[in-house]
Design a binder for these strands. Sequence first.
DNA 1: CGGGATATTGACTCTTATCAATGCCCGTGG
DNA 2: CCACGGGCATTGATAAGAGTCAATATCCCG
Lengths: 228, 228
Amino acid sequence: MLTPVAQASRLPRKPGFALPLRGTLTDETTGLGPVGIPTSFARNTEIYAEGEPAGHVYKVVSGVIRISKLLPDGRRQISAFHTAGDMFGFEVDDVHHASAEAVVAVKVVAYKWQSLLAAGAHSMSLVRDLLNLTMIGLRHTQDHLLLLGRKNALERVAAFLIEMAERTNAGPVLELAMARHDIADYLGLTLETVSRMFAELKELGAIKLEGARRVHLLDPERLASMST
Amino acid sequence: MLTPVAQASRLPRKPGFALPLRGTLTDETTGLGPVGIPTSFARNTEIYAEGEPAGHVYKVVSGVIRISKLLPDGRRQISAFHTAGDMFGFEVDDVHHASAEAVVAVKVVAYKWQSLLAAGAHSMSLVRDLLNLTMIGLRHTQDHLLLLGRKNALERVAAFLIEMAERTNAGPVLELAMARHDIADYLGLTLETVSRMFAELKELGAIKLEGARRVHLLDPERLASMST
DNA sequence: CGGGATATTGACTCTTATCAATGCCCGTGG
DNA sequence: CCACGGGCATTGATAAGAGTCAATATCCCG
């Protein structure tokens, strides 16, 4: 597990913190001053596990992480992927109720939750930021409920591609950081079905694949309309 | 839609506000003084709709409400049911991204969001409460993701009964406020499948039905274990 | 260049959805 | 108080979508 924060060291100022309310917690707004050395995690390693005591929240500096929950028999549901600027690890009580793992090599900065709250005592805006971040997470999760509860396989995969494209608001070429298995566990499908839906989208001329991970969105409009 | 708050009138002090962090916002903690006359809504009427401007949050005084989202073709996903003491209607921006409707006749109290935040400026604990309520909602929603993404029909229905039993922490007899259709839209199933799973749980000796709405939980332990 | 992990594709199964018929409450009015 | 009617719920037969199992194929990565 991640060792607590503390050291003096400035995390490198990154561009791309401008997305609405993502990454609001800068060194300045926390009032915490230096927040700690970014910690690195290798691909597929655990940042924290379900059931573990929770004392920190984290901000992704680089890479991609996944938040997931397991059933006793191993069935897994990924509730979110987080990328640079995103914060994760918020918990009501002192226990993590989901686990966080690195999808690819990542760097994250840890904030002591108690310190944030203490800092919040002097800074209304900090607590407001935490509230906003949590509400954004809630909205995303509720949208995902609709996907899992009511959308078919093709719609789910189309929605996934749109979501990933939006978050890396780059051009029409999308680099997927995660394997089919992770996509499947995010969308509540099997990896075979995900693969078939990619094939179908290709058939339909909505996407083009260049290897398994590079996806050209040939017709984002149509893709969006398919994600109903 | 609901008309804004304001009037002098004390809402009746109800017992049962003791559940951890449900209904933390009392007249006292808000510092708002009298918060308004509870507003009534008849069964199946709308409290607010998806897309509508959001300016209030609500606390259920009595009855049950459902939060839902619709796809253009009418498919519906219910993300939560709320009962006495629960708060709902939190939004990041100024638009409701889901709708709220009365499942049975309900009374709710509306709080102006801006007033809460203004009051929060003097009361750290109020904002903390809002944060906690939101995090609790987030946790519930993530648990529900696991259900929708990875559990089979029988597990979903068993989990539903357990959830409902826990929240009305009464004895072994459960009064369901909602119709099969609502249960189905909460669990991501059809009403027929829900009905069949009730039948199967009956077969298995886990429950007994007395009419469609009254459920005896004959073996809550087993039911819980079936909800994996 | 080789090999292991990852992905695709195929054949078949199984769960749940769909369509349809019947049954059961419960409230209303005669 | 009883009968009727309409919404709900149950049950059945069948279909469809996604899962499972299995056999390649492809892609990285060393």
